[in-house]
Design a binder for these strands. Sequence first.
DNA 1: CGAACTTTCTCCACTGAGTGGACAAAGAAG
DNA 2: CTTCTTTGTCCACTCAGTGGAGAAAGTTCG
Lengths: 396, 396
Amino acid sequence: MRRMTARPANAHQARLLQLLRDGGPNSRAQLGDQVDLSRSKLAVEVDRLLETGLVVADGLAASRGGRRSHNVRLNPELRFLGVDIGATSVDVAVTNAELEILGHINQPLDVREGPVAVFEQVLSMAAKLRASGLAEGFDGAGIGVPGPVRFPEGVPVAPPIMPGWDGFPVREALSQELGCPVMVDNDVNLMALGEQHAGVARTQQDFLVVKIGTGIGCGIVVGGDVYRGTTGSAGDIGHIQAVPDGRQCACGNRGCLEAHFSGAALARDATEAAEQGRSAELANRLEANGGLSAADVAAAAAAGDATALDLIREGGRSTGQVIAGLVSFFNPGLVVIGGGVTGLGHNLLAAIRTQVYRQSLPLATGNLPIVLGELGPTAGVIGAARLISDHLFSPA
Amino acid sequence: MRRMTARPANAHQARLLQLLRDGGPNSRAQLGDQVDLSRSKLAVEVDRLLETGLVVADGLAASRGGRRSHNVRLNPELRFLGVDIGATSVDVAVTNAELEILGHINQPLDVREGPVAVFEQVLSMAAKLRASGLAEGFDGAGIGVPGPVRFPEGVPVAPPIMPGWDGFPVREALSQELGCPVMVDNDVNLMALGEQHAGVARTQQDFLVVKIGTGIGCGIVVGGDVYRGTTGSAGDIGHIQAVPDGRQCACGNRGCLEAHFSGAALARDATEAAEQGRSAELANRLEANGGLSAADVAAAAAAGDATALDLIREGGRSTGQVIAGLVSFFNPGLVVIGGGVTGLGHNLLAAIRTQVYRQSLPLATGNLPIVLGELGPTAGVIGAARLISDHLFSPA
DNA sequence: CGAACTTTCTCCACTGAGTGGACAAAGAAG
DNA sequence: CTTCTTTGTCCACTCAGTGGAGAAAGTTCG
């Protein structure tokens, strides 16, 4: 199949595409209820979209008390590729134009191997998905990387945990390989987009998404739009001081949040505790697996291990300490906690909540939900698909 | 003179009004260079604005090599009232439509006396300015209060330092008294608007303004617009923890920034130092004035007093500590330091800079200016005038 | 001084987006 | 079968906006 190349010709068409994306098949009449246009004008724009092939007819809808309406929907053959590169693993997914996941692969990966090796892997994963019949090609791709990005150009800048990537033209290179438009963003921003599109943040205009994985970062949404900062490093909260004169951090300072709590820090502290004989449970797991991860700590805590529970609580306290400051400053309507460490579940959430509600002023916390993300590991790829669809479904 | 009641009829007219406000008198041709409209359409809109009386003819401009152009300008009889209520003093100013200050009064005031008493004083100050011939009436007024505001309604909410004001309909009451449209905002946000309009932040899209006065707060500008948060308390950074297990704060927690550095905290610490005999310079001033203020500390430091200098440095360190976190999170293009405490000048700025540049990541600080505000005590009233003019110069 | 060029401003015919009403098609309710 | 409701199409009309022609007012230079 030839890939779609059409773009909406004006803001009305863009709006209609987004309504069809977020609301599924719709009749002209229903669309008319959601946009401020006369029926005549609306019909004209829908007809034009049908001509481009972006939208197709989708049979008759049930009657609403009169003549049945003709539904339209986004072309079901459209395909987006969502890529979420983490520090130690990568997610690749195929979605339709309504951003439903049709196929999803996760593989371990070391981002430090550099862009060339990583792209080879990503492209072979995409090829595998294509080979399985889910897509004949891609109409667009979104990709998230674990570091700051110069967004307009789609280029990582000075990413601490992925040295070889600095300045690498990710957008252009991938666009070349895939033969379709590509947008690049920070992985945390994509997680925020995902939770906004299909998760807990659906109705929110101003909210924060804190992703605790190998590292720790924060997605910022202002007025419904992701805020990226002047140089693309907004939300880089891993090196905010959480503990004065605390642990030495790789960045050269002491007491950074990331040095005290993150997937890596938790694994390190758990191993330390096991080796020092402070937890039989953790020591057993260390011996069994030859190493410890956040998941081991979660399991140990679930099994009632006090040391593991303490590690989680202490991490939650540090994280809550930093989040409390952000809440005072930003006054969000919602805080979402996500990332690999969410396996720690309620224990972590409780510790964070306690700290935030205690340290921030009542006006900011009075009606502030602090919740776990809804989408888990798919948040990133859904956000990636959302990113490219936002781009393609806006006037050319 | 009858006050102006007209509003721009469409976005084009609004844009033109804003260009005339920010750029002064302009010819149709010059305006045409700045908006994306044909000369014909532009002429039509300018003519309509002339009909409303918002804009008036302003003679012939110098030739640019051909026929001389007819200038137009905002009606020079338009008057805005800018009010900046602080914790211990109030500024009231009259501006023309180009937001130039025509008259300015500052008076001491205790905001805790409640809205009724404060309004009486503000209205008499406004009357005094009117009586001096600067204005026959006001076309609009902007007012800043030292606490969070529910912006759409113009009502303070749960303001810690001004108890009697909670829920008082400031906007409606003042609009009634003055007989003109009124907009209400937090004082720090107005300072940000002021520095954006006429100060150091003229070219910035994303920046922070930290106001250190009796208390401490932060104005946040995102994409050129003030961000106020979900409940209007965004930027309330006075109670972010700066020193773990630090000083007891009025809010109930320990180590809040405001408890360690602000006009009030500095005066308290200086008095303590004087009484404990740690500074002869400060002790002399305490005896002479019967009390100490931030200005005394500034003077003592300028005179070479080591204790005063230490107080400033320590305060700057705490402030920088908090700002460093905000910089990592928000990645602004500029940080402006303002408020009464800016009298401490370079010593304070140096301490803040040191801390921020040391604690935040290079990508965020690499090209980040941290500067003092340009407008001093007029920032608030200019911002107030800007607030109401933005409102009036937008489509009705 | 007059001719040629520039800039500014006005006028006007034309385009194209968008509206709203009339009407037809299709179904529901009684 | 009649009446009412909803959906979709058609069409005349309005109005924002364009772009070119040309007049008005200046400058420059031979």
